[in-house]
Design a protein around this nucleic acid. Structure first.
Lengths: 251, 251
DNA sequence: CACCTGAGTTGACGTTGTCAAGTTGACAAC
DNA sequence: GTTGTCAACTTGACAACGTCAACTCAGGTG
């Protein structure tokens, strides 16, 4: 009986062994897309789809983890392309950042399986080098840096990038893991709000710092609390002293 | 040869069959804690540790997923207790919320395996009823509601709760999944900043709305952009018209 | 032609979740 | 004290998974 999933494949000519690598990658990607479930990504299923026996995968990938990583890398390259496209042609770096953020979230929601594999997988011990997740951090950083250069955002680039990525990732990850939560209809609008929220955070820190007591914990936090007090002074007589509702480190 | 992991266990008396359920749960929890790796949570390992053969687990749990869910539920109850403890004794609901947020993040960082199982696991199809993740949403809501009652926060409770949880979860999830990112030393300080950022967001929306053009997309977003324009008006002559750096829906 | 080397296969091992069928042991009734 | 009976567990097995050592097979080279 011929294998049900695919016809057998002609052997490659010597020197063209790497052709199989591409076919395996395509088979794995298609399998993920169609099943919509990462548990369908089996070495046996991938090999059968590529028209090849299971151990042949090991000719091009050290193990399953390695194959998954390769699939993810390709997906992230797709994301990187989309984020760059979303940002190009927009002069204002703030607007460009908003669009990149929106592209990020949209991508995550449209490719839930790949996103989960990329960002929610336990990192294997001893894994080093350039990973897909590193690329992701870079994509966000590329959106942040022009804002810093133009003075639209102020703050530490690394910290700001991490905070922005955490905010975006939190929304996507929570939505994917808990779709039964009472989400609003317009999750993408919510994503835009999150992007602006994270970006505005640094602006507050930069503008509101000014002269005064040295920011004890972080200028970022101090800026928030200064604005928070200005916006909503405590109305209910709190039992504590002068700055009951303000900031400062948590005791 | 006696099983290496545990001595065999005396059979329970009729009517006390549920005792084994507790022992299995304890064994699974201990296994997770000690190994620090969810791949160590095997039905065989759990059963051996409980001094029982593998299929006995199926007397009290429908399948492995069910067992994992039960373990998680216990862990979340622990988290709920901690969050409530962190919030009690603090009069100011804003400060109470900050402490709850800090407790949430600290818990996630201290129990990475359990957190991953709880919040980063693909939800099984057809899973319904009260899950651990639902409890988690409720814990955050319990911190938000007093702020709304006191007028410290303004906005839709559900949307605000989701946004707060997404911000907190984003930080924890990103840290756990990508520990090699250039994180600052004080992740917990960063968590506090995130909590205030998410909380402040709603305050901005509520205070800055006021009279003016009807908020087209969402009052939440409009508030941000009003403040954003006030704080950093566009300096570089953007090619567009009147409100180049402001908000509005993304075209 | 013979030979070698790269490309892919065969067959197997250990481990996992899961299930049907069997066994054991404590209590109730006689 | 013997006998049922039923809950509490065990035995033995299955299919599927990742992985590996050993084997086969075809294409190009001498």
């Amino acid at each position: 009986m011929v294998p049900a999933t695919s016809r057998s494949r002609a052997r490659a000519r010597p020197g063209d062994g790497a052709l199989l690598r591409d076919e395996i990658l395509r088979a794995a990607t298609a399998l993920l897309d169609e099943a919509g479930d990462e548990s369908a990504l089996t070495l046996r299923a991938v090999a059968a789809r590529a028209g090849v026996t299971t151990p042949s995968v090991y000719l091009h990938f050290a193990n399953k983890q390695d194959l998954v990583e390769a699939v993810c890398l390709a997906v992230w390259e797709d994301l990187g392309r989309r984020m760059r496209e979303a940002g190009t042609g927009v002069e204002d770096p703030y607007q460009s950042m908003r669009r990149r953020g929106a592209a990020f979230v949209r991508f995550g929601l449209e490719h839930p399986v790949q996103y989960r594999l990329l960002m929610m997988r336990p990192r294997s011990a001893g894994q080093t080098g350039w990973t897909a997740a590193d690329a992701c951090l870079a994509y966000v950083g590329e959106a942040i840096q022009p804002c810093l250069d133009a003075g639209v955002l102020v703050g530490d680039p690394t910290r700001l990038t991490l905070q922005m990525l955490a905010a975006l990732h939190g929304l996507v990850a929570l939505y994917l893991a808990q779709p039964d939560y009472p989400w609003p209809d317009d999750v993408e609008t919510m994503a835009d709000e999150v992007t602006r929220m994270a970006g505005l955070g640094s602006a507050l820190a930069g503008r509101l710092r000014g002269p005064g007591p040295a920011p004890s914990t972080s200028a970022f936090a101090a800026g928030f609390d200064a604005l928070a007090e200005r916006l909503h002074p405590p109305r209910h007589g709190a039992a504590e002293g002068g700055r009951p509702s303000g900031g400062g480190p948590l005791p």
